[in-house]
Write a protein that binds this DNA or RNA. Structure first.
Lengths: 108, 108
DNA sequence: ATCGTTAATCGTAGATAAGCGATAAAGGAA
DNA sequence: TTCCTTTATCGCTTATCTACGATTAACGAT
């Protein structure tokens, strides 16, 4: 499978790849779902379209503060959004950002 | 956008989600590409189908030992494979594993 | 104003990641 | 054998993640 001496070196890109903003954003999105709890949160939100933070906490075997941190990470990636509703906060998926992630991966 | 009191609590899943092996594997794959350098390495390998480690080092603004660590992480995720070729090591994408990642994300 | 609920933040501890230089291991060449 | 090349690993430092309990902040209700 592996090509050996027949393969030329980095002809097309002999220079160092600069910090690729695309790769940075890709990695940022991948990082957001690079933890099982965050995968589950994202799936949960996709499945029910919106969910109050407390419900998410009830669905995970994690402390409230820990879930809150995961939600913060997901929010910072842009994958989810939180909307204050009185004393509660309702989280939902950001469809545009999700599509961005999908196209990144599909484009590999 | 956010549903409020009209949305019922976790009716469909009131119990804690157990450690979902699917989510674990998903997170593992996402983790592998959750770093810009690893995104670039994966793209590089997809684009040229195989590449000697030294070439990858030449393409990235990182020390050889650092690149080697990233390659190790990618290898552990199953996304890439390394094949020894004399003193060199030729890396290539594992298509099956890549497809797995794609279907995970597409299935979100 | 006070209480109760909800969620974010603080502080802390332990684990892990990221980066590098230096060294080791393995193979080819002289 | 002795070099030279190539890659993995070690040792180390710094920074970040993960998790938790406790506290704070914000809101509704009484």
């Amino acid at each position: 499978m592996a090509k050996r001496s027949t393969k030329k070196p980095c002809d097309s890109m002999p220079v160092k790849l600069k910090a690729d903003p695309t790769a940075d954003d890709f990695a940022k999105l991948a990082w957001a779902i690079a933890h099982p709890a965050r995968v589950q949160i994202v799936r949960l939100l996709i499945g029910r379209e919106a969910c109050v933070c407390g419900e998410i906490v009830d669905c995970l075997p994690l402390a409230q503060s820990t879930v809150s941190q995961h939600l913060k990470i997901l929010k910072e990636s842009g994958l989810i959004q939180g909307e204050v509703d009185g004393p509660k906060v309702c989280y939902c998926i950001n469809p545009k950002r999700l599509e961005q992630l999908k196209s990144f991966v599909a484009g590999l």
